[in-house]
Amino acid sequence: MSQPSPHPRPAARATGLTKVYGKGETRVTALDAVTVDFARGRFTAVMGPSGSGKSTLMHCLAGLDTVTSGSARIGGTELSSLSEKQLTALRRDRVGFVFQGFNLMPTLTALENITLPLRLAGRRPDAAWLEAVVATVGLTDRLGHRPAELSGGQQQRVAVARALVSRPEIVFADEPTGNLDSRSGAEILGFLRDCVRELGQTVVMVTHDPAAASYADRVLFLADGHVVDELHEPSAAAVLDRMLGFES
């Protein structure tokens, strides 16, 4: 089903990825032998109804959750072969996250939040890159503020900057617009698309909003733990159309 990638090695790849929760009667197969590639420098949206496995796919690929069988890779690294410590380091150095609930540290300023992953790794931020990221998300004059002093949109822009600052190989965004009004949401999606187009970032976004998905280069559709369809260069209408097709 997967589209052959233009690059020799994809940013992330799932091969026969299976995830089972629970045992016996409560056993739920969230992902059933999913095989999919996420190409470098592309913006991919993962869609599907609740319980389709889209979040689980992201968690497994990001090293947040363990897989039951099959393989999940970031670049050339097989995640199941990594120890807890190595997984932590991988998340810190090679993966960026944007959460639905912003999830900033309330005690740190915007700048401190942005540079936290670097400081956890004991690295100094690259000043030019930091400036570029901060400028891209338009936060230059809000860096000294605490999250409580920022609007929801501004908080999510800080979160995006935090995800980008360590130049990760791949950024995972989990319903990044879920808690935002439509204008702020559009801004965030614009930033994500800009950093793919202009900075060459790779972004994987889980969403159930067709309008959000229309910002992506490619949309994957999941249902009952399987990849059931995909769209390239989609419009919101096309996405909605496709989704209505699954639910009927």
Binding site: A62, K85, T88, F97, F99, N103, M105, L116, L120, A121
Partner: peptide
């Protein structure tokens, strides 16, 4: 979140 963005145990 701290664990997700790279703080170890």
């Amino acid at each position: 979140v701290l664990r997700a963005i790279g703080m170890d145990r």
